[in-house]
Design a protein around this nucleic acid. Structure first.
Lengths: 188, 188, 188, 188
DNA sequence: GATGAATGAGTATTCATTCAT
DNA sequence: AATGAATGAATACTCATTCAT
């Protein structure tokens, strides 16, 4: 009968956290995040019991959002190589379009505050992409490697490629293609 | 600004910082680092003006040490592929032998406190390795890509491979070879 | 300011406050008390304007309940000494039967939040017991001391005796009698 | 070789804590205590690891000081009754001369923050007074009661007497004597 | 140079109370 | 009346850095 707890407000806190973490790192004060979200400091703790909880929620939200972006339009393609190339392009597109999200994710990716459970949830979200990857490497030289290993390699290549595109955006397309070709050579 | 006498003490602080950062992350108190180094809290600031300065010194020291380890014995080989494989193996060997050094480097690698100058110094230290890489990719499909891009890809692959070896040490050799083969395929 | 309807709810809040204060002390959150009473946090403030008001209400309620317990069956006795002994026994019985009530009262007894008015009300409730005390000391060495002083001494003795019974319940009866005898000696 | 840690400063913090706790209760902010002691907020935590530690130190300091005051001149007397009467008088004198110390002690006496170890130390400090008490009750009706029980009764009587003297200081001497006589009657 | 005591700004979290529903 | 979301002031404790010894 009281005001219901607002999903909007929760989302606003997560969104604010992304901006503030991108700008200030994980040591950003909760008070700053709350103010950026337009809520009182105490309200942040109504939606997230601790700062660590918020950080984990942000991590999972970003991973999920990224996963959706990566798979956009992918199933309209028939060819596996084309599917993987589109996913790859989507990935780079998302990361370069939302640099603050990528920055926040980079901070969270190496933080001890993000729990194994959250990382697991992140992998879960990327399951669709993993499936394409699975088909891409099947029959190739990495057919017997653990999928996790292959995924880690792809992830590492994508991160390196994104770093390079950001530092040299004039040749974004060239780097995107070169990165993908390099990856494809790994698989075939 | 006169350089303090004891080079030993400076080294002890850097060594202690590596241990403590590996264990506690970059937010480790300077007092903890000083105690681990066997010096007084105030003494740390005789050798490093700020904590950020210390962090940068640690970063450069680790990168330099790693570079030396990577090149060990490499010039005794004639074949480029063999040289690269030895460098690759040395790299993985170093990273898995000194997990706390790698952990510290991982923390520092993503920190905003490490300056572009320090990162530049890190690249400089790796110049010898870069040269081998340069010859490895010459004539191959990546011959026209910026060397920095190629280096970033290799670095990414190495990190992913090390992660995997650490999480599954029983198959260290298999992962080491698989990682190298994947990289080699990228170049040829 | 219209009195809220439910007397039940008010009583439930007071009862919950006793439990929670006994367990957590006076710094127990109002939200915890409200939840223990089965009402919403906001509802507590419909029945008590402030936390201090609630604390005072609890104090008076406990003192009143204790006074009733103390006088139970006392007027059936003729002899003053027997009356006082029964009251004394009733007191110890109540305090040891409801340790959480005594604990809460102990916390409140030393609190600055309990007003002189509430303490006055507490004395008022104990008027019946005071009357017996008055007759007990009449004619003895304390006949000219202020009644309040005598009451304070008796109260102090009772508290000390209760403490001792709680810490050594095996000899409850012995302590009860020894305490009473000591008190009686003071009066005669 | 640095400044030695100052005993004076520690004492100043304890003294300030007594004043502030007497005025504001145990919830007094550590920052207020530090300011009253003339030190920085952080310095308080150099001398006491936590607020609880400070509270315990204050408790023990007050108990010890009180014990010294109580025993002042007592051993010059031969007669046990005179010794006990002087100790009793000293006690009331100390409590009424330093009402803020007594207030602070009253707050601490009922606090859950004061550990059993601290209470034990408090008893230890009062060992001299306990010895006089032991001799006072020997041969009397309380000869077989546990000493702790007798001490608790005496303590309770003293507290009640002090309360009464504070509320009616015009008749301090009368109350002092009446309280002592009442106690003596308990023992004989 | 070396020490470690001293500083005080900075931060996560709590909680009495209010108020929209 | 009843609810519980929303508020924001309040507070213990930390830690990079300075400075008296």
């Amino acid at each position: 009968m009281a005001r219901p707890r607002s999903e909007d407000k929760r989302d606003a806190i997560v969104a604010a956290a992304i901006e503030v973490i991108a700008a200030q790192g994980l040591s950003a004060p909760t008070a700053t995040i709350a103010k950026a979200a337009g809520v009182a400091t105490g309200s942040l703790f109504l939606y997230f019991q601790t700062k660590t909880d918020l950080l984990n929620a942000v991590y999972v939200a970003l991973k999920s959002e990224m996963a959706v972006a990566v798979l956009d339009g992918v199933h309209a393609k028939d060819d596996v190589r084309e599917q993987l190339f589109l996913a790859w392009s989507n990935w780079l597109q998302w990361a370069t379009s939302f640099p603050e999200k990528r920055r926040a994710l980079a901070h969270l990716g190496v933080s001890d505050e993000v729990t194994p459970q959250s990382r697991q949830a992140g992998h879960q979200a990327m399951a669709g992409a993993a499936e394409i990857l699975e088909r891409s490497r099947s029959g190739g030289p990495m057919r017997d490697a653990p999928l996790g290993f292959v995924a880690a390699l792809m992830n590492a290549l994508a991160e390196a490629t994104i770093d390079f595109i950001i530092s040299d955006p004039a040749h974004a397309d060239r780097h995107r293609i070169a990165g993908f070709d390099a990856m494809w050579r790994m698989f075939t």
